[in-house]
């Protein structure tokens, strides 16, 4: 097989894996937009906040320690424990649920019936607020992220040797696939399956879908909007935690983690803002598209094409299908 074709196959596989990582971020946007019509600008910061909270809890860091020390002249930084990853994840989920309640109680409850642009602006404010709280709670230094089931079983990183050997035996060239990307793909599949099962087969899930379809109709049959929106923000918070862990494992947990939202936007434009399968398919198309373009055309034009190419690809789709591949066509009658 020609060498360039093998390279292209390797790039395509890696593009698919990268696409899954983008889709993980995009899922959080979709959940909130679908249920409340809010484009949540704070989704990237939620991923940052969740990842920082996870690492902080796991490492036994005292929240707001810098503030406490500055006010009371103490020198406390750590509780002195190291929690199991699963316990830390559970506690972080509790924090994200509390955040969802606070967001609903103090922000969006007061904005019911406002124009979408007002709600969008509120999420911009929320993003800055959350970023500030994350800084105050856990500090700004970069933290190493370890998720381990046992001492020997941690989130894997690095080349998958089985794929490397198999492809080498088949083609004479070993493909590089990152173990972390494989894990992210498995996690994404499980996550989507849980989300679909939740929305299809549980009472709360059906209520979420009812609210998404028509707020007024859902209210008229006794569905509590407040409850559903807290539920939706909690689920989006959980998705943000998963995305934060996967991305944080690559780069450490740091403030630029919030910028992963930039990677989700073209995915949403392409897949549609209201479709969970759309987020996945959109992510895969963007991932493969940008990686192949960088591989084939990038070297001729100086490289670094991935950021802008993803948006160009999304814009092309927008021209022909404004609602995205799987999005619902919005018809407003005047």
């Amino acid at each position: 097989m020609p060498e360039q074709l093998l390279f292209a196959m390797e790039v395509t596989l890696n593009g698919l894996m990268a696409g899954v990582m983008y889709a993980l971020v995009a899922l959080g946007f979709v959940l909130i937009f679908k249920a409340s019509g809010i484009f949540n600008f704070a989704q990237g910061v939620m991923a940052l906040f969740a990842a920082m909270t996870f690492v902080g809890i796991q490492n036994g860091q005292v929240p707001f320690s810098h503030l406490i020390n500055a006010i009371f002249g103490t020198k406390i930084h750590y509780f002195g424990w190291e929690l199991h990853s699963m316990v830390a994840i559970l506690l972080t989920v509790v924090v994200m649920i509390a955040m969802a309640w606070a967001v609903q109680r103090f922000i969006f409850r007061h904005l019911v019936g406002q124009e979408p642009i007002i709600l969008f602006m509120a999420t911009i404010g929320l993003a800055y607020l959350l970023e500030g709280i994350a800084d105050l709670m856990w500090g700004a230094e970069i933290k190493k992220l370890d998720v381990c089931l046992t001492d020997q079983t941690c989130l894997p990183q690095g080349i998958n040797l089985a794929i490397d050997e198999t492809t080498f035996n088949l083609f004479g060239y070993g493909f590089f696939i990152d173990n972390l990307d494989i894990t992210a793909t498995i996690v994404a599949i499980i996550l989507v399956a849980i989300l679909v099962a939740f929305s299809q087969y549980t009472k709360q899930g059906r209520a979420m879908r009812a609210v998404a379809d028509d707020h007024q109709a859902a209210l008229s049959v006794g569905v509590s909007l407040n409850y559903i929106w807290i539920l939706v923000w909690s689920v989006a918070g959980f998705v943000a935690l998963v995305a934060g862990i996967m991305w944080g494992a690559k780069s450490g947990v740091q403030f630029s983690l919030s910028l992963i939202a930039l990677k989700a936007l073209p995915v949403l434009m392409l897949g549609g803002f209201t479709s969970i399968p759309g987020a996945i398919v959109g992510g895969l198309i963007i991932g493969v598209g940008e990686k192949l373009f960088e591989f084939a055309i990038g070297p001729m034009i100086g490289g670094a094409t991935e950021n802008w190419f993803a948006y160009v690809l999304a814009l092309i789709f927008l021209v022909f299908r404004p609602q995205g591949l799987f999005g619902e066509k919005i018809i407003e009658r005047v």
Binding site: W247, K263, A304, N307
Partner: peptide
């Protein structure tokens, strides 16, 4: 062999695959 990485640089798979090749 210059290899550009777009800001902020969270995704560099293409560049490192090229380095591997």
């Amino acid at each position: 062999l210059p290899l550009a990485v777009d800001h902020p640089g969270q995704e560099q798979k293409s560049q490192w695959l090229q380095i591997r090749r």
